[in-house]
Design a protein around this nucleic acid. Structure first.
Lengths: 336, 336
DNA sequence: TTGTAGGCGTTATCAA
DNA sequence: TTGATAACGCCTACAA
């Protein structure tokens, strides 16, 4: 491996000069810089990252832990999210460290230790927040910069991105009401999750603003998987006075609902309608295509990385809280 | 941040002893070791990764570059693949560095430089191989250990995993022939890709072994996306003597094909049948559910990491070439 | 404009 | 069984 020493030797210059020439300092003669740059390229020199990190006390690396719980790592939400993180990180000249761990597991805690205490990452990106989230406590305790999609209730002040779920749901419920629906069900996510709290609240707000009462029997638990959407829907449709509309905490749940309806030979789109949340690509391709609230996932990921990098470089942060809108995509599952 | 020095000072021991106690060397008194371990835990000490890397000349980090080309990073194949890599890496105590880059782009080359020449990773995992792949040349030139899913034709000897595509396709075509199909089309992937070469060859072998002739007009180009499957299918079905069966290079393509059929009011399952390749979760949930050749993605990823880690630790590698089978899942898209 | 030298936190060699 | 010490490769105050 060629080191900065090799380059220096070749040019009979000091390593200091090489270092500064390559890092774009102003106090290097233009001719020298050119020469150094060219020779470095020729020799295939790239600074050893470990040495640089040790000296600079930064790693230029961001960490993200994919919340994979066996059943549900297949949520396409995450591919897009990771792609967004990766792209933006790359353009900012940061690397992205990714691992999988089940939320709340010992493995997850171990990883945090390894990365944070060992300073393997400069900052972390969190998502899938829990209402009270030990990660937030831990990171703020350790003084490691982090950003998150959704904000937990831990009362720690940190930059974050959120989606205006309430406005989205209000628009969705209004759309359903306009189509004549009154008995509108909701299939939720794990209760410990912030998105469940947000989305359920959004559903509630939508119902209230439409002047409808919230019937507890029309609210089901779920876990963001197709299966849970399927089961909850079977239960809902077996009721005496079943709902005519089903809203869901995410698209996968809604896709499960479509399947349940299909198995019960219920056509979806008019008498029974279904809506999701996320706007994953698959939602365009279901039968019938799924009405959903589309989150700008890629953009969210970009924002998160930008905010985190700004913190790390101690650049002024234009806004510590970014709110993005969810877009209501009306498709045939509510509009046949 | 607490360093090994702090721990040493607290215990009035030398840093040498601390280091060896924690790394499990044999020449440390049992009592000392216990004491050191406990104190280190109490003080929240974790070795600085950069320093360790610099000294040990290894990073305990694996690299993977997600081949994201705008349109198609949403392929759920990759979420599962990354989850598999991440899980296995974690159990082997390695970290996983992930970035996105368009295949063959300058960005991709830049990342390789940064990671490989800067020794930011100890080894790389490659997939989506091109027939002739500069990455293989580059890595073997640099002497950086790597493994891949599929093997390029560069003639470099390295450990890899492959799927027995041929056997899978033969079984699939046989199944189709048994159901009475003779005009069997194939929608492929980019011609520069190894999987295209393999899967097309598999299709050919299947046709031959069924005693059928390969009609060029029934072979279409595609790019592994839904859109390309859709377009190719429209073209195929507009022919004079259209195919009655359509096989595809992956599930997304097949899903596009289902949609095209749907738009043309062609029912899929009997008169016209469609099959995919990959076995992504979505394939169970299409209308009708999709017949496909399921690759053991998670297992593939695990194998790759195990092989790579074995190389890095210079452990004996039981096999430098692992071949896994694709499982034919017959569903209603070919069997109504 | 360039060079000298110290140190980032570890691990490993050698001596005690 | 333990300790002193020299690297690993780079960056940066300071000196020239």
């Amino acid at each position: 491996m060629t080191t900065i020493r090799d380059v220096a030797k070749r040019l009979s210059l000091s390593i200091t000069t090489i270092s500064r020439a390559l890092d774009g300092y102003g106090d290097v003669a233009e001719g020298t810089r050119k020469l150094v740059e060219q020779t470095a390229r020729e020799m295939g020199y790239a600074p050893n990252r470990a040495a640089r990190q040790l000296r600079r006390k930064r790693t230029d690396t961001l960490g993200y832990i994919l919340p994979a719980s066996e059943s549900q790592f297949a949520d396409p939400f995450f591919s897009e999210f990771i792609a967004g993180l990766g792209d933006q990180a790359a353009t900012e000249n940061f690397d992205l460290l990714v691992l999988t761990a089940a939320p709340g597991s010992e493995a997850e805690k171990g990883l945090f230790q390894r990365w944070v205490q060992g300073r393997k990452v400069d900052g972390m990106v969190l998502n899938r927040m829990r209402l009270y989230d030990w990660r937030v406590q831990y990171l703020s305790g350790q003084g490691l910069p982090f950003v998150s999609l959704e904000k937990s209730l831990d009362g720690v002040d940190h930059p974050y991105v959120e989606v205006d779920v309430r406005a989205g749901f209000v628009a969705l419920i209004q759309h359903l009401v306009e189509r004549g629906h009154r008995r509108i069900a909701y299939i939720g996510a794990g209760r410990e999750l912030k998105i469940q709290s947000d989305r359920f609240a959004g559903y509630g707000a939508g119902m209230v603003s439409a002047g409808l009462e919230l019937e507890p029997r029309l609210v089901c638990d779920g876990d963001l998987s197709r299966q849970s959407g399927y089961q909850a829907t079977r239960k809902l449709l077996a009721m005496k006075n079943p709902p005519t509309a089903i809203t869901c905490a995410n698209d996968l749940t809604a896709i499960g609902a479509l399947e349940a309806a299909h198995d019960l030979s219920q056509e979806v789109g008019r008498g029974l309608v279904v809506a999701g949340f996320d706007g994953i690509e698959e939602s365009q391709h279901t039968q019938p295509p799924l009405t959903t609230l589309k989150q700008p996932v890629y953009e969210i990921a970009q924002h998160l990385v930008r905010m985190l990098v700004a913190m790390l470089l101690e650049q002024p942060l234009p806004e510590r809280r970014v709110q993005l809108q969810a877009e209501l995509l009306v498709r045939q599952s509510t509009n046949s």
